[in-house]
Design a protein around this nucleic acid. Structure first.
Lengths: 144, 144
DNA sequence: TTTATTTCGGATAATATTATCCTATTTGTA
DNA sequence: TACAAATAGGATAATATTATCCGAAATAAA
């Protein structure tokens, strides 16, 4: 469904959020160990999240990645996915047609619309805060 | 959402179905021209569909690809997707966790379940016949 | 101001996906 | 039987994705 990069990005953002609640910055090393991802690759993905203003980075000693506490609740899964995979999940024809819309739909256009819409709503309605709190309360897990 | 291979496979199967209604076999060349896909790659995908018993191939002179007429209505999108992409769309964790189930769900497990289920239902309920008839009646389009 | 720490970013490598090419095999027909 | 028409399938190439490495730039603290 998502690219590997996007999977890592989502998990990384959740881990950063959890730590930002405690005012702790985290490094790519900590992150990749915690979410079980390749370190250097994860660092690249973090850069993308920084560029898209999803997470904040602080360089130099005692630096690391963090998310403003009051931003965690406002940040939605959709923003993370967009920062990494772009809008390919929403946009684009299910069968790869160049032109595919209501006027000239591909064979699966209308069938797909429902699923796409469900996915979009899910991504736009799920906040980082919610995901981070589920981990903290032990309802969900980041690893294994 | 789907791999390129899967997109081509779905379109190819629809085109074969349309022609099988008229008792015409079609070649990889005709197919790839009609669905705007690379010929040799499409041929490989057709082989996979044959192996998985989705379409029938007839070698030699006057050969080509076809689908038994009484099979067209019974064949579901899910079977085509499965033949090419496997069950990765249904199975597997949205965040790539090795272990992710009701007992030990990943952060998005329950959110994703809804979307996955919608997708699964859509694929399993959509028949080749339906897709082929929509094309024939000019409601949907295979190209552009 | 120097040093240690840490992210940034370019270059490169490994792997997976997509695509092409060429020959073998099958089958109908002259 | 010989030939032509077709799919099957192996080998290879091109591209995209995933992953690694290393030096540059920034920053805090000694």
């Amino acid at each position: 469904m998502f690219s590997k990069a996007c999977e890592y990005g989502i998990k990384a953002a959740i881990f950063i959020a959890i730590n930002s609640f405690e005012n702790r910055r985290v490094s790519p090393k900590e992150i990749s160990e915690e979410i079980d991802s390749p370190q250097a690759f994860t660092a690249k993905i973090l850069q993308a999240l920084v560029r898209h203003n999803v997470v904040k980075s602080v360089r130099g000693a005692h630096g690391g990645f963090e998310i403003d506490k009051d931003k965690i609740a406002k940040t939605k899964l959709s923003q993370i996915v967009y920062a990494i995979d772009g809008d390919s999940i929403y946009k684009g024809c299910g069968l790869g047609l160049h032109t595919c819309d209501e006027n000239r739909p591909c064979p699966v256009h209308n069938k797909f619309k429902v699923v796409r819409e469900e996915l979009r709503a899910m991504l736009e309605n799920t906040s980082l805060e919610q995901l981070a709190l589920d981990i903290k309360s032990g309802v969900t897990f980041l690893k294994l």
